[in-house]
Amino acid sequence: MSLLKATHLTKSFRRGGQSFEAVSNASFELVQGEFAAIVGRSGSGKTTLLNLLAGLLSPDRGAVEIDSVQIHSLSDDALTDLRNKKIGIVPQGRSLLGALTVLDNVRLPIHLSKNRNISRPKAMELLEQLEVGFLAGSFPAALSGGELRRVSLARALIGAPLLVIADEPTSDLDSESAENLLALLRRLNEGGMTFLIATHDEQAVKSSGRVLQMASGVLEAVLQAD
């Protein structure tokens, strides 16, 4: 069953007075329970594509369907609610709120969806699974890059989303931590969660059931992993 369907997605930006297409006519589908990776050089349009798929960016043309809902035709509030309930996002770079503890950062999406009762034990469980439970009371400024990525992933997973979109989830991790993280993602994937990650990491590519190749905004090839 198709969970994510992108059809002729196109997004342009202006740079130096010139318009260029960061994503050009991209179409593909993900079925529920799939683990797919988008690979490509820096600036190839991977992040823009992920932002379009997550509803964080509006396309110039094309459509995105998640769980049979055309997300870009939704109102801003409805799209936000859908993102909160059905999509877990791990963006590039530091993405935790500096004024909140690690535990509160992870709990916040649940509080925004008004489902507060389950947030604390579930957040602790996720942090333990990602081997950062001991950092629950710490603030993001005290965390290493790898720890930040794991906490960010825990936050993406807290709402038990149908789809997790992660932009370079292993970028700040050493090889052992990256391996552990990917193993965790695989376990969650085996439990039915769908993953779409943008990555340069070969291990991550090997973990993926399908690899989407991007170059200059164009989704060039869809490869099945070995």
Binding site: D76, D77, T80, N84, P91, L96, P109
Partner: peptide
Amino acid sequence: KEFGIYRLIGARRSW
């Protein structure tokens, strides 16, 4: 960036 993070995790504009 902070506001972007709030939006990313499901905070409405009105919130």
